[in-house]
């Protein structure tokens, strides 16, 4: 006989009582009342209702899986498609880049952004920490941000500048929309943006691992966190490691945890990475740091680089997007579309 009660999350003694009283299948529990069960098992009514709750929870899982019950916990591609459509994206404030990213940085995914010093990695980090807070009425996520700073490069003055410009842009949009209907109201002040950025300063790789382990709990206490930015994932792992195998193991453990976090809490994880030079085919190339095995760790990889006189972002790796590049610029207001591009638009 099928002992379905083994799957219930109850203590061993209670399970023993269930079995000896003849309740072995879930269906046998489905039509019994708590008081009947309490009498049959000689336990308190409270305990009985706990058992029934566990049983109905288990049963529900079963039912929902019935349509595709080959593997528990699996999801059909069709359902995934539906979910992807629902998931929101965080705008980068650069229209061209949003376009090639399919609308912005995707929630539920881990995106790595790398580039040479001064290209604007931290700028992207701060911009996303602000943009994730754009209210839903304005097409944003209305979320909060966690900023994990391993290098000490987060500049709060800059975050304030970017938040101020973001509020200005929202006011402008409000003016524009008001002509049609009076729906949106800008209620956020620049300082409110700063209030919603949770800043962790991390000073060793141990702390970096600790924070990432702790995030799940932190996020359960601070709902609405929609983006986690690690600036940079590289710094501590580049300094004090002799044992490269250990480094690889720790990094891949880290990446797995972040991926799980992104999925479970449906938030975007953005990892900033440094570059290094690599010698191959008789010449030096630039490549993102942390080695080849790390390059498998992230879902998406975006490389920032100089192309002539302009900054470009290149999608180096993504399961769903095609390789493409788009110009962007770093202005006083933050990340914006490329200057020469906007001129072109004005002319037409």
């Amino acid at each position: 006989m099928d002992m379905e009660v083994w799957r219930l999350r109850i203590s061993a003694t209670q399970r023993g009582k269930l079995i000896s009283a003849g309740y072995t299948s879930l269906s046998s529990l489905s039509s019994v009342s708590p008081s009947d069960l309490a009498r049959d098992l000689q336990i308190s009514e409270n305990d009985a209702s706990e058992i029934l709750k566990a049983a109905s929870h288990c049963g529900r899982l079963d039912n929902s899986d019935q349509s595709h019950a080959i593997v528990t916990g699996a999801q059909t591609a069709w359902d995934m498609l539906h979910e992807e459509d629902l998931s929101r994206r965080i705008t980068t404030s650069c229209a061209d880049l949003d376009n090639i990213l399919g609308g912005g940085i995707n929630c539920k995914e881990v995106t790595e952004i790398g580039g040479v010093p001064g290209i604007g990695k931290t700028q992207f980090g701060i911009q996303l920490a602000v943009n994730v807070q754009i209210p839903v009425d304005f097409g944003g996520l209305g979320g909060k941000a966690i900023y994990i700073d391993t290098e000490g490069s987060f500049m709060v003055e800059r975050a304030l500048q970017i938040a101020e410009s973001c509020v200005e842009d929202m006011l402008e949009y409000q003016e524009f929309v008001r002509k049609k209907f009076q729906a949106c109201q800008v209620q956020m002040q620049p300082k409110d943006f700063l209030k919603n950025i949770f800043y962790f300063r991390v000073c060793s790789y141990t702390e970096q691992i600790a924070v990432i382990n702790y995030l799940e709990k932190f996020i359960s206490e601070h709902k609405d966190v929609k983006v986690v930015i690690v600036d940079s994932v590289t710094f501590h792992f580049r300094q004090d490691f002799d044992d490269m195998a250990l480094r690889t193991r720790l990094l891949s453990g880290l990446a797995l945890k972040l991926m799980k976090l992104a999925k479970n809490c449906s938030l975007a994880v953005v990892l900033l990475n440094q570059v290094t030079t690599k010698y191959s085919d008789g010449s030096f190339h630039l490549t993102l740091a942390l080695g080849d095995s790390w390059s498998h760790a992230c879902t998406n990889r975006v490389i920032l680089y100089w192309n002539g006189n302009e900054r470009y972002a290149y999608i180096d790796k993504s399961p769903s997007l095609r390789s493409a590049s788009a110009p962007y610029s770093v202005t006083g207001k933050g990340i914006r579309g490329s200057a020469s591009n906007s001129k072109r638009i004005k002319m037409t």
């Binding site: 304030l160 943006f193 950025i197 949770f198 800043y199 702390e207 600790a210 924070v211 382990n213 709990k217």
Partner: peptide, 30 residues
């Protein structure tokens, strides 16, 4: 155990706002 250890080893967080206020309050020329 790892969750517990991580929680304790994890540095405390601050909001960006409190960071800004601290600098303005405590330091020369912010």
């Amino acid at each position: 155990a790892v969750v517990r250890v991580s929680e304790i080893a994890c540095p405390p967080y601050q909001t960006a706002l409190s960071l800004l206020e601290q600098r303005i309050q405590n330091e020369y020329f912010a």
